[in-house]
Structure formats: C-alpha cells, structure tokens
Amino acid sequence: MTTQPQLNEHDLELLSAYLDGQLSADERRTIERRLGDEAELRQAYEELRATVQALRDLEPLRPPRSFTLDPSQVAAQRPPAARLGWGRLLQVAGVFAGVLIAAIGVLNVLGSMGAGAPSMAVQPTAAPASEPMLAAVPTEPPTVATEARESAQYQTETATPQRGDTAAAPSTHDNGAEPGAPQALATVVVSPEAIARPEVAPQPTIAPPAISSPGTVDLAQPTPFAEPATPASSPDVTLLIIVVVVAALAGGGVLLWRRVRG
C-alpha cells in the first residue's frame, strides 16, 4: 500500500465539481494552475477521474419486465385530473346540504319547544332576511344566485311532504356522478332522513328552502318543489342559525380537506 495524499474536503469538492465542469471561470483557472503545480492534487484528480470513469462505464441493467400500467386495472383507481373540481364540489355541496338540513331540523325542534307551534306561523316578510344569509354559505356564487331566485319564487307554497325527496336528491345524484364517494353518500343519506324528516314534518313553518335548495340546484335537480317560506323571526333563533351554519362550514371544510389529502 502506497502512502496516499489525503486532500482536504474542500479540495476534493473542487476537483469533483471540476470534473463535471461545474466550477466558475475563476475557480477553474485557479484549480488548473494548482494542478500544474501540485503533484498531490494532480494525482488525486487522476484517481477521481478514473473512479468516475469506472462508474460511467457501468452497464445499465435491463429491467426484468415492463412497468406499463394495465388500463383496465388503473381506470378505477384514479379519476382523471379534470374531474377534481366539479366532482368534489358537488360532493361537498351535497354534504353541506345534508348537514344544514339536519341542523335546521334540530333547530326547529328547539325553536318550537321554546316558542310553541302557533307562534311559528308563516311570516313572509321575515323570509328574505334569512335567505341571503343562508344562501351565502355555499362556495359557488352563480348557483347560489339561481337558488335564491328559485326559492323566492317558490316560497309561497308550503310543501312539507316533499322535503324528504328533496333531501334525498343530493345523495342519489352524488351516487351517479361520483362513484368514489361513499362517505359523502352516507352522510347525506343519513342526516336528512333520520333527522330532518321526522322532526321537520310536523312543523311546516321552518326554513329549509334556502338550505336544501343549494343541494338541489347544485346537483342539477330541476324539481321545483316549493319549500315553505321561512321565518326565523326571533333574534336568538337567528343567532342559533348562524352558529349552526358556522359549524356546518367547519364540518364541510374538514371533510374536503381529508378528501383532498387522501
């Protein structure tokens, strides 16, 4: 074994970068001058160059098989990029609608317990006030506008029995549009039927039109049922609605976040 010069790390790094043509003009001139003067450095350079040459000479290995993907196998795994926007938005809108309907159902019961059924009689003047607030919830301005118009149009009618259908609409549509959304489906299905329907039905007065219609309209469900116009007249009920809306937003946000991540 010969006694070999041990260059410091900085010089080695210079030589290594010099081999790859990665030095600045100044650095290159300096190192070339030193290579002429210093035998140790020159030897280190030659050895390094031989080492790199040996690496470059290594034959690449041939892959044992091809790694192309089988289209039929892959098709179900990932929806193409283009579907990200609307598919996801529809899911989330559906979930929003479900959560809101459920929340309003509960609210309705609470309200009726406090005020008594008779006081919940329809008060058309209050409806416009509560609508914009709820309509502002979804993230899609155009749909919201349409929806607001629709509910304004139909709000004169009271159609409690249809509410179950309306609520169920998002889930069926979701199912068709987005096969990969079992969670959203479950949420939407459960909330309206388990909570909204039984509890809301006896109380024809409360306000789902603005709430359920985002789901309905977003999902291109043109059924124009009319929802009862709704008046949440007392201030603490309004406050409660705000709280519920915020909670629903938070829930929807978390859901969206998990989906996007997953």
Partner: peptide, 30 residues
C-alpha cells in the same frame, strides 16, 4: 456537490485499496 464529492472519494479509496486504480497514478504519487 458535497455528497457527490464524498461519495466519489469513498469509492476512490475502495478502488485504491484493491489496487485497481491505474498503476501509473500510484507510481506518480510515489
């Protein structure tokens, strides 16, 4: 740059140990 340099230097040391680097370089060093 630093990882590359250290990796190459290590390989060079191994080749040196096995006396696989061209002889003239080693003679030149001596």
């Amino acid at each position: 740059k630093s990882r590359l340099s250290r990796g190459r230097a290590r390989l060079r040391d191994l080749l040196r140990q096995e006396e696989l680097l061209p002889l003239r370089f080693r003679h030149e060093g001596e």
